[in-house]
Design a binder for these strands. Structure first.
Lengths: 218, 218
DNA sequence: AATTCTCTTGTCATCTAATGAAATAAGTGT
DNA sequence: ACACTTATTTCATTAGATGACAAGAGAATT
């Protein structure tokens, strides 16, 4: 078949190619057959067949000019996937790293109806005095660091800091999680205010930014 | 190969199967190999190979228990696709039907940064006195029908009505466009207030609801 | 612990069905 | 009408996808 002997061929070329085509169509937004074929280095006939398969499954569609564009299925599945908890799963490792670096509790929140946000996951901090679990609680978008982040209201620093927002004596630092140009959630660290300093805010902010940036990086 | 002679085989079985697996994983959210294989009627070995291909491309991933879950790529591509204008394309026909039924201008809007919405498409009405083109304009989420719809703030009726919101003497009726449990846009009709009646509001509201409901139906 | 499940992973011979070259069709511009 | 580009179909070839089977890895039951 191919590949290294011993290592069984774990993947399927046909499927690989189809997925590559799907990706390239979504990335570029609009592609002709020829362009698509060139982009993934396939013969026109093969590309055509695979694109048709993708089209039949409505992962892509053809516009009036015959160009290929993203279809309904990919959007449906993408949003399905997001809503399924995959954000939570995807953020577990980043949040764990944040806790390892800071000792403080890290939260993941998402937008909720009615100008609110919702904490959907936590990795608890290691300090003995630490913030208690807020998962499941909603919060107003305007008076919290996570809320500001969810609204894209980060200043030049890229992160938001709010002291005594939702709760007294607590400082929160938050960054938005963006996919494409859409904010789909926020990562935040919540710290008892007495323990916070200007430099630790900066440090945590940078840490959050780094993790958020990598989240959906290819 | 297969299929009807004359009709060339337009699709590729391998790719079809891979896409079917991808769909089923996203729909169910979490599936074991065996379940996935059964769901799409494949032998375990074939399903395994295809799932691995999907996994290698990060369209799916395995969780701690070994179950398959939606991966990063599918979310990325989904959001990419949405932001690319595919919503615009998908809404063209529904909007055209709305204009045919009402004679009034129909708009499509999406969320924009900073508590705003953005009109991204219009199908112009047929009345000689009609609303002028607002495409490209942003609007505040709180004082407009589209904004309320984008925030899910529809009452029991399912649609939002706002008179003299963004502009005087104009009434807008809007409904959210949901994918899964996420609101990705809003459809609205904008009418000069002097032409509106209670019953026409109700009629337009129902019309919008019907179109929005069908948008992402499988 | 030993046995019996169930589920996943690896191997391999078979032959389907994916592949690309080349021919043809359908446009597009000059 | 012609040259040129892009899409589509055809078809012979054989790469490589496939599924039966075996082997391994856990769980659960005795």
């Amino acid at each position: 078949m191919s590949a290294i002997p011993g290592k069984p061929d774990t993947t399927t070329r046909t499927a690989e190619r189809a997925l590559a085509l799907l990706s390239v169509v979504c990335e570029r937004g609009s592609l002709t057959l020829g362009e698509a074929a060139k982009a993934v280095d396939l013969s026109a006939s093969t590309a055509l067949r695979l694109l048709r398969t993708l089209e039949a499954a409505t992962f892509i569609r053809r516009d009036d000019e015959g160009s290929y564009r993203p279809g309904v299925a990919i959007v449906q599945l993408g949003v399905l996937a997001l809503s399924q908890e995959s954000l939570v799963a995807l953020c577990r490792d980043p949040m764990t790293r944040i806790v390892e670096q800071t000792g403080e509790s890290a939260y993941l929140s998402i937008p909720a109806p009615g100008r609110q946000g919702l904490y959907v996951a936590i990795v608890e901090g290691t300090h003995s005095v630490r913030h208690s679990n807020w998962v499941g609680r909603k919060f107003p978008l305007d008076s919290s660091a996570s809320g500001k982040a969810l609204q894209g209201g980060t200043g030049d620093t890229g992160y938001c800091v709010v002291s005594d927002g939702v709760e007294r004596d607590v400082t929160a630092i938050a960054v938005p999680i963006s996919v494409g140009d859409r904010i789909v959630g926020a990562l935040s660290v919540v710290v008892p205010s007495y323990r916070i300093t200007t430099s630790s805010i900066e440090r945590i902010g940078q840490l959050l930014l780094g993790e958020a940036r990598q989240l959906y990086a290819r």
